[in-house]
Amino acid sequence: MTENGWMAFSILIAAIFTDNILLTNYLGMCSFLSVSKEIKTATGLGTAVVFVMTCTTVINWLVYYYILMPLDLGYLYFIVFIVVIAAFVQLVEMIVERVSEPLYYSLGIFLPLITVNCAILGACLFMIIRNYGFLSSLAYGFGAGVGWALAITCMAGIREKMAKVKGKIPKGLEGAGITLIIAGIMALAFIGFSGTMNIR
């Protein structure tokens, strides 16, 4: 494999495991806490995030290096990125609605949630700050999405099991509290991966 390809591969693995965007950077917490009650919805949202994140990191990379940089408008990147994300999500929603109804009901209903998901914008900003090349950005966007989906699916699995033992959780911890503690333990488990791959 070429050096570039090898680097992109290591970024892909690192973004999923050692540098999970949710468990080490706390991004995308809002939807993580509210949509992780059932495995089915969690995987639906997870898939949507993987797709949108991969596409938007690539589009934003192109926009940043081929439009903003030559025009010396680098400082505008926050605004441009968020507009690109919002427009892309809107577009995908419209296309999915027209093309396939089952897909719309399994995936499309999650799309509006994604515009305000901090993980998407976060991935785009990380990619610029870490100076990734095109291939690495693609790998990072995909990896970060998969990592997020993995975390939310695991969490939904745990919460489905937990719903069966109602009454054993202290009242003040029910809902968000216990979810955060589980997330903390998951983050601890993911620390076990650290050192295997490096993100930079």
Partner: peptide, 17 residues
């Protein structure tokens, strides 16, 4: 990272209590 999750959970626990 886990420290942040645990701290926030404890904070919420106290306030909700």
């Amino acid at each position: 990272a886990p420290g942040g999750f645990f701290m926030l959970a404890i904070f919420i626990w106290i306030v909700k209590g």
